[in-house]
Nucleic acid binder design. Structure first.
Lengths: 206, 206
DNA sequence: AAGTTCATGTGACATATGTCATATTCGAGG
DNA sequence: CCTCGAATATGACATATGTCACATGAACTT
């Protein structure tokens, strides 16, 4: 399988190259330092698989992946990074990459991942996958049998409209202190930490 | 690697067993016909990996996986099925399985997937992964013609996930003060007053 | 009537948030 | 080379938020 390595750090490029060429079913056909170069190399070398860093100057890995996928839809892309940022994960998957794995894995693990991707599957590093899984859990809208009093629910709704405690107090004729107390109760019941999380929770679940 | 095969269909069990034992780094330590039996076999044989069908009598694969994961958290589970039903995918991931692959794949592809899982990664069959990815995609709705820098957008997203300034700072490697400054900028641009309103705005408009 | 529960209120406190003025650094353009 | 503007950082400050212990009174029970 022909592999293209893309990373802005020459050290990592070379390390990966050596590592991958130890395997006799892999061949490194080239390297690139950013997404733009990666795309150009794809035109020239037509690799089967691109191993792509995310954080790079000029053109980052997500954009590079999109570009490559648009023009060469048979080329597989595996994102390789040190960051487990949710936003990146989503972006990477949306960009069409077949894998998202972390640099700090043992090298044989990376190799196995590449093989699995070569065979047509998708591979996600463990922590990435659990992030995904928790994202999916959020999507579920369980009607929730929360036992909130009418007052609590009312206040939760107002928080989710973006009102401050003082505004809520004025709106429903209670003291600001009371609103705070209710907020504390809501946070406790819903196992959240602050009013922003309350608002998010309300919007996602009601 | 010691593998336990779980499927209610003896034919498939045997086929898989033969297939897997052709590989010299795998060893089939047992087979089971449903989730309950699978759990019992895990107690006796302590496999490294369980290859689990979903649709089975007595106890299905999702329940079986949950049970196994609860008692033996080092045992990896790969769900193997003919169905690409969204509900199953989500359930399977939530149950803690490390992989979800389809029976109609070429056998070497299945083997590679097992190896990748053995190395600690997660593997999803292509169509499963694209189902996941499309699930994620509809999270974004209208792109909005706001002129926010990538940084601002990134921070807005994190606020909308309910993170505090400090957490955001740690996540994207900036100082907390900088995050505050960005927050102020976002509030100014979006004509809002506090982070809760930012979160609400994001959830409603993106 | 005494006790209990619930909703509401208060004050003190610690921490988080938002504002602002002001650096520092660095790269693009003159 | 110099300047300009961005991205980032810092510190001081005012306000908002959240926590907690406790008080009050009304309604309900026994």
């Amino acid at each position: 399988m022909k592999v293209l390595i893309v990373d802005d750090d020459a050290l990592i490029r070379d390390g990966l190259k050596i590592l991958i060429e130890l395997e006799n079913d892999f061949e490194v056909t080239g390297t690139a330092g950013n997404g733009q170069e990666a795309f150009e190399m794809c035109q020239k070398k037509r690799p089967d698989l691109v191993l792509m860093d995310i954080r790079m100057p000029v053109m980052d890995g997500v954009l590079g992946t999109k570009l490559i996928k648009k023009h060469f839809n048979t080329i597989k892309v595996v994102i390789l990074t040190t960051f487990k940022d949710d936003a990146y994960i989503k972006e990477a998957i949306k960009s069409g990459a077949e894998g998202y794995i972390l640099k700090n894995q043992p090298s044989d693990s990376i190799i196995e991942s590449l093989r699995a991707v070569g065979k047509g599957n998708f591979v996600f590093e463990k922590e990435v996958a659990s992030a995904l899984s928790s994202m999916l859990k959020d999507e579920k809208r369980p009607p929730m049998k929360l036992d909130l009093s009418p007052r609590e629910l009312e206040i939760l709704e107002l928080i989710a409209e973006g009102l401050s405690n003082k505004e809520i107090a004025e709106r429903i004729y209670l003291s600001e202190g009371t609103i705070r107390n209710y907020t504390t109760g809501l946070l406790e019941k819903l196992k959240l930490r602050d009013r922003t999380q309350l608002a998010i929770f309300y919007l996602k679940n009601f």
